[in-house]
Amino acid sequence: MSRIPAGMYIPGKSFLHRLDPLAKLIGLIILLAAVIAASSPGGYLLLILFIGVLLALSGLPFKLAIAPLRRTYLFFAVIFLMNALFFADVDPLWTWWIFSLSRTGLIQGANVVLRLAIIIVAGHILISTTSPMEITAAFRRLLKPLQYINIPVDIVALIVSVAIHFIPVLAEEVEMIRKAQTVRGARFDSTRLRDRAASLLPLVIPVFVNAFKRADELALAMEARGYRGEGRRVSGPEIAFQARDFGAVLIMAAICAVQILVL
């Protein structure tokens, strides 16, 4: 159980904790739109300030809120470098072999990393202030219309949230396995096609076995807590949207509008 990754719900009574989960979810989706629309330094500044305000409202310790960033800085570095070095541009600053460093690439890299960091922190604030059950319930309410065509919305919501959770964890694990097999003499860069599939086995098999093991542990833990994955689960009293929930969604929408129209 100790290896089940972080990003867990922290019970509390802050403003964000009390907000309707659906309002938080809609807020996050609007924030995603605002992040995608952001393109200027001013736009990013606004978003970062806003995240700061959210953090203050959530009552979470600052260290805890940025924990997912500290754990995954390597992941960010890789994303940044991939964008900076492989962006095909007409006017590269520096080229060597297959790499080409360009201004556009650097900007693109910084853009992707900033966006990702903001999304991850925002998502982390949501996960920390809302219990997984509340999130799935909110997803279900949000996507309720889809249920009329027989789509089990709560399961899809669960899959997405768990998957996002696992991305940095598995990225680190793949890197570790790659290194372990390299020391054992594995060569992943075999040029002959016939060897290539075989040379991938030492990497791919452990990656899947370990990922499935994590899935197994998590499924057992969830079932032990009584989760069955059925749509008719009791999800606590349905909270109706209140003034503050509408207010929160409106503020988000305003920020997104400023982002798109002004900055």
Binding site: I155, V162, A215, D216, L218, A219, E223, R228, G229
Partner: peptide
């Protein structure tokens, strides 16, 4: 189970 399939 559905839960296990979902986690996988």
């Amino acid at each position: 189970t559905i839960v296990k399939r979902s986690m996988i």
